[in-house]
């Protein structure tokens, strides 16, 4: 049996969790403070996930880009592919918090959404 030490990343307390893994899978989990930690530790051993936060280009916006996130964690192994796929994405202003930016990123079933408002450029502001 193998003991894996995992630092929970679900909240700032960062509990140290011990997972005992045997041939048949997880045998026991200890050291967590709440259920989020329990779930995290189990996932981390079997199929680790990470939320991805980055930016995509905005056309015609008051700012050149908008911050985005995957709605939930995606498999850790897909993180770089997700970044790659988002590189080619451009959106038109205005963008609102929560707007869908990319559906089903990398076939994970998870959407990427905007986390910031970006207003449209108002050309009247530049006259006179």
């Amino acid at each position: 049996m193998e003991i894996r030490y995992i630092t929970c990343i679900c909240c700032p307390f960062g509990c140290q969790i011990e997972v005992a893994v045997g041939s048949g899978g997880i045998q026991s989990i200890s050291g967590y403070t709440c259920n989020r930690g329990l779930n995290f530790a189990a996932n981390e051993v079997n199929h680790p996930e990470r939320m991805v936060t980055t930016t995509v280009r905005v056309i015609g916006g008051m700012q050149p880009q908008v911050s985005v996130k995957t709605r939930k964690g995606i498999p850790k192994s897909e993180v770089f592919r997700c970044m790659e796929e988002l590189k080619s994405v451009e959106v038109h202003a205005p963008v609102r918090i929560g707007d869908l930016i990319r559906e089903n990123i990398c076939g994970t079933g998870i959407d990427v959404i905007a986390t910031k408002d970006v207003q449209q450029i108002n050309f009247q502001n530049f006259s006179d």
Binding site: C11, M51, T53, T54, S67, K69, T115, K116
Partner: peptide
């Protein structure tokens, strides 16, 4: 722009 804000206040993890 990263996540990790507001867990204590809103019980969800925001950017």
């Amino acid at each position: 722009i990263h996540n990790g804000f507001g867990l204590l206040t809103f019980h969800e993890e925001l950017t």
